[in-house]
Nucleic acid binder design. Structure first.
Lengths: 143, 143
DNA sequence: CTATATTTGTTGACTAATCAACATTATTGA
DNA sequence: TCAATAATGTTGATTAGTCAACAAATATAG
């Protein structure tokens, strides 16, 4: 009988905001002509920032399962943005960015920053900082 | 060459937080024994709060496309949580909750509130309110 | 009134995430 | 040492979301 108030729920808010930002980002990515999705870009950034690692570790850092990462890497490999190298542990691949992969990351980083900037246009500098702080604290609490 | 700092990006933060909360919610929903997913629940809540409406309007309010809503409704209809009624406009269905649908909503609302409460356990009352305020402002700005 | 445009729901193809099961390889404990 | 356990990547099935194209019904403009 009682109403569930969406605007009181971080779950609803983050999910909806995330979806809308993904849509905006996707549109901007499409505009570049490079055929890469936001989720593929996120994976590329992670490797670019943290250095090469195996699929299992990527899954852990992205809070996804190994199957999801496997398929993303499949796509990135076809597009030659990433390669699977053999390492000491013969169960695992080491995933590394190609030159093309590095270039794509740079283009999309810029597009992403513009999207974020636009989204935050309603905030003062202080508010934006506060939001960031709170979101990071929340993420820390649940992960 | 320049690093893209994830923790500075509302896009990354909301997407990751959303994914983790979905996972927690999904686990809690599973525990109830009722076979319904978080996304299906969100649609049920929307109808429960706003009253019956057609699929196009549901899509609009959820920031999804009509195809996505169509398939969610298909699932909910099979589970008899929702029905498609005919209205004046013979292009559209009117989607209404069944009794079972209303009951399921209540159970899941409770589960969801617990998940949110747990997620916000690191915050003071003031911080939680502030976060809510900022997220609502952001959502307003982008939608 | 009627031709044109718009809305609504649908379908198929694609990307993405999850789950459960599996084979292969590494690690560990007795 | 070697049997049990764990980690790694893979696969198939399922739920979600997006896009483009479509048919049918409705609305609108001239």
């Amino acid at each position: 009988m009682e109403k569930y108030v969406f605007t009181d729920s971080v779950g609803y808010l983050t999910t909806t905001i995330s979806r809308i930002l993904q849509q905006k980002l996707h549109a901007r990515f499409k505009y570049t002509g490079l055929n890469t999705t936001p989720e593929q870009w996120r994976l590329l950034v992670l490797i670019s920032n943290e250095g090469e690692m195996n699929q299992s570790r990527l899954a852990e850092l992205q809070h996804k399962d190994r199957a999801a990462i496997k398929r993303l890497i499949d796509h990135l490999e076809v597009k030659k943005l990433v390669t699977r190298k053999a390492g000491q542990d013969s169960r695992a691949y080491i995933i590394t960015l190609t030159q093309k992969g590095k270039e794509v990351v740079q283009v999309f980083n810029k597009a992403s920053k513009e999207t974020v900037k636009e989204a935050l246009s309603c905030f003062t500098e202080t508010e934006a900082k506060k939001l960031n702080l709170l979101l990071n604290k929340l993420l820390n609490n649940i992960s």
